[in-house]
Computed example of a mutant assay.
Amino acid sequence: MDVLSDAVTMMRSGRPHSNISRLPTRWGVRFPPTEGAGFHIVLVGTCWLLPEGTEPVRLSTGDIVLLPHESGHVLADDPDSPLTDFRIGPRVPEDEPDTGRIVAELLCGAYVLDRSRPHPLLAELPDVIHLPARVGHHPRLRAAIDLLGAELAAPGMGATASVSALLDLLLLYMLRTWFDDQSTGSSTGWPAALTDPAISAALHAMHAQPEASWTVRELGARAGLSRTVFAQRFTTLVGRPPMAYLTWWRMTVAARLLRETDASLSSVARRCGYSSEFAFAKTFKREFGVAPGFFRRQPEDTGS
């Protein structure tokens, strides 16, 4: 698994949903804050995105906006339009006369995310990710949008499974597109870490084999750097030292295993790089504040 896939997999919870909305003149929708992430894709027309606490963004046909932290926003044909509260399902405002004139068509969706332990790669995303339409750019992202739109417009056999899979694919493509765009000229942070051959090699090794007895020297060798240079570069780009990140990732994997499998504590410990169940439990309690067994018995709270 690569880092982006792992980060999304660890945070994704529940089933995403999506719909196509066809909107006539004078419309506005208020979306409440949630613990998930939302997106809007303008298929036809133009509209305004008014995020909570930031400047309005004008969206045109083909534009994509991803709201990773979903702190509440408004979508409208004009910033001064009257608003109605969001509801799930295809939407045409009830107070609008049926003139047959559609001025905007949007593909919208939302993801349920577990915010209890967000991967820093996703936690550090901006509140609004705007991906303007650019002819010839990001063909895979555009293909995923076309497929999802077709499934929603004319559902066939297996549509429930295909829409869910396409939504997961769309999320990855939106994030990949943003990281690719940000990596150009970026010298710090996760966009730089993911595109730095040395640091990405070390991250991939940690994610692929969290059970391995990694040392800074061995990870540096994977990266093709000396121990000191590797440790400094990793800390600068990732935001924490290599061993601190490895421990964080191991405990994140452990929490997922405890929640989703019946594996014994000793088995979970081994799969996360601990030969001693006692050492594993001590580290886990330091990270989560409770012992692994108690954590497993607690009801999961995704905040959704």
Rank of each mutant, 00 (worst) to 15 (best):
S275G: 11
P210H: 07
L237K: 01
S200E: 12
R271G: 09
M206W: 00
T235F: 03
V268D: 00
D196I: 06
S187G: 14
L203A: 03
A201K: 11
P242E: 01
F230W: 10
G239C: 02
P191Y: 02
A279R: 13
L246R: 00
G189H: 11
F234S: 02
G185D: 07
T188L: 15
V253C: 08
R222T: 10
E277R: 00
Y274W: 12
A201Y: 08
T252A: 14
W214K: 08
H207D: 14
H207T: 14
T235P: 01
A263Q: 06
D181P: 02
M206Y: 04
S276M: 12
S264Q: 11
E211A: 15
E277H: 00
T235R: 04
R270H: 11
D196V: 04
T195D: 04
E211R: 15
V253M: 00
R259W: 04
E211N: 12
P191N: 09
Q209H: 15
A279K: 05
A279N: 11
A208S: 13
S267I: 03
V253F: 01
T228K: 08
A254G: 00
R270A: 13
Q209T: 05
F230N: 10
R271W: 09
G220P: 09
A202V: 03
A254H: 02
W248A: 13
Y245Q: 05
A263W: 09
G273W: 09
A255K: 04
Q209N: 10
